[in-house]
Design a protein around this nucleic acid. Structure first.
Lengths: 251, 251
DNA sequence: CGGTACATTGAGAAATTTCAAAGTTGGTGG
DNA sequence: CCACCAACTTTGAAATTTCTCAATGTACCG
């Protein structure tokens, strides 16, 4: 469907060989394994899993639209974005993928996708083989339920995002992104001193919000100037949470 | 979640009693039954179905966000829109529902939704009881497959729509909507003389595309002036299909 | 130390919104 | 059958948001 016709060739190269120095790890040592889909999928028997792990350097593609997919993708460590590359060179980021996220619940049994996945930071990811997932879904109704819930949540998110992009001003869209990530990090207890990781570049924020990088920069400057929050250098520091949440709230 | 806090109270009233004069019909006489989800669901045994049909007058709500849902909604006749009503009075139309469409495949087992459904024309709809659908899904793997495919398609559509709204100018968004409907009517052989039904008001088109009604009007005028297509009076007449499709194409 | 990617700033242009008013249409009751 | 009403459509002018182009500044990596 949509192909990444204008991406530099380098993005197509298999990056396994030039992977960053992440610890070689497996599902049975994953510290997220009790909290996510993997946890339900393997139900304790992590040692038995033959999932294929891969490391990808920041800014490289983990999956490219149209390629045959090796299995269900889970991002174990690092941030990624799910995006489509338009023929005219623009990009639309569809969603941000945080550690532990199943990339596309709805696409569970699809063998190829119309979107690509790019690593934002260095990423360690995991392809759960289709056959394994399907077999376990058949045997395990609870797992099926979890998957149903993830699927419904994904669709709700897509609807929410549509409203976001269509009805809201630049500042509100960016605030909504920051609050979305803030919320997710807070659930995991990973926010300290109102500060948390935020490795997306302004270009990536722009591709997510549908703004130009220039305008994104102006909005971020304005947020900084008004002492609401400071985005940069891979982190966000929240200064006025009340105001930020007011901006992010749907009106 | 999102409630329709600003809708006039009249929209909340049960409309069954003031329903329009549509023929009272049932699934076993539905002329769409071989082509859609219902067809697969009942697999010929239409007489046995105890689905609850309802008629709704144009511009009234079929379902309102947050209400307990009676079952899976299928629109049998007429057009509807799936939308969210924002607290500030704006509306976002998430998708257009044409005759025979299952409203939200992904929400198959959800008991309530965060969106509402409004009838565009007079509508006859059908709530398939959850229990019935679930039972038949269990017994019938082929049905389950169809449902999987519908779900994946819904998510793909949502992604496509995100790109549409975020990356494209007013004219292109409107062209894309017209071509989308054109394509669906053409599949059913319901386009004659480059003309087909299009009962959405400019306000509804605006809510779908995220534009103001005023700007929507200007764009439609411009399409008319340039002899590309003429939208109005419940119909579209295509004058320059090549150009319209060029405008609707993703660049 | 140099390069490349990333961030910032300015000024002018373009698309879209807002506000306001006037025209049209279709349906309803008299 | 007409008159009226309400909802929908059209048009104009000014304001606002966001984009584009272009130049300069900054940080990190090898």
């Amino acid at each position: 469907m949509l192909l990444n016709t204008l991406e530099p060739l380098s993005a197509y190269v298999d990056t396994s060989s030039i992977a960053p120095a992440l610890p070689r790890s497996r599902c049975d040592t994953c510290h997220l394994r009790t909290a996510n889909f993997c946890g339900a999928l393997f139900d304790g028997e992590f040692a038995a899993v033959r999932a294929k792990h891969r490391s990808t350097a920041a800014r490289r593609n983990i999956y490219r639209a149209g390629e045959p997919s090796e299995g269900v993708l889970v991002v174990c460590e690092g941030w990624a974005v799910r995006f489509v590359q338009l023929p005219n060179g623009k990009r639309q980021v569809l969603s941000v993928v945080l550690p532990g996220d199943l990339v596309s619940p709805t696409g569970l049994l699809e063998r190829q996708f119309s979107f690509s996945i790019q690593a934002v930071t260095d990423v360690r990811s995991c392809f759960l083989p289709f056959a394994e997932v399907r077999a376990r879904m058949r045997d395990n109704p609870a797992l099926f339920d979890i998957w149903l819930r993830l699927t419904a949540a994904e669709q709700r998110d897509a609807d929410k995002r549509l409203v976001d992009l269509d009805q809201r001003a630049a500042q509100e869209r960016i605030a909504a992104l920051i609050v979305h990530v803030l919320t997710r990090f807070e659930e995991r207890g990973e926010v300290h001193n109102d500060e948390f990781p935020f490795p997306m570049s302004q270009q990536q924020i722009a591709d997510f919000t549908g703004l130009t990088p220039v305008h994104t920069c102006r909005v971020l400057s304005s947020l900084r100037k008004h002492s609401i929050c400071d985005v940069g250098h891979g982190m966000v520091k929240i200064a006025d949470r009340r105001e930020l949440q007011r901006m992010a709230a749907i009106k």
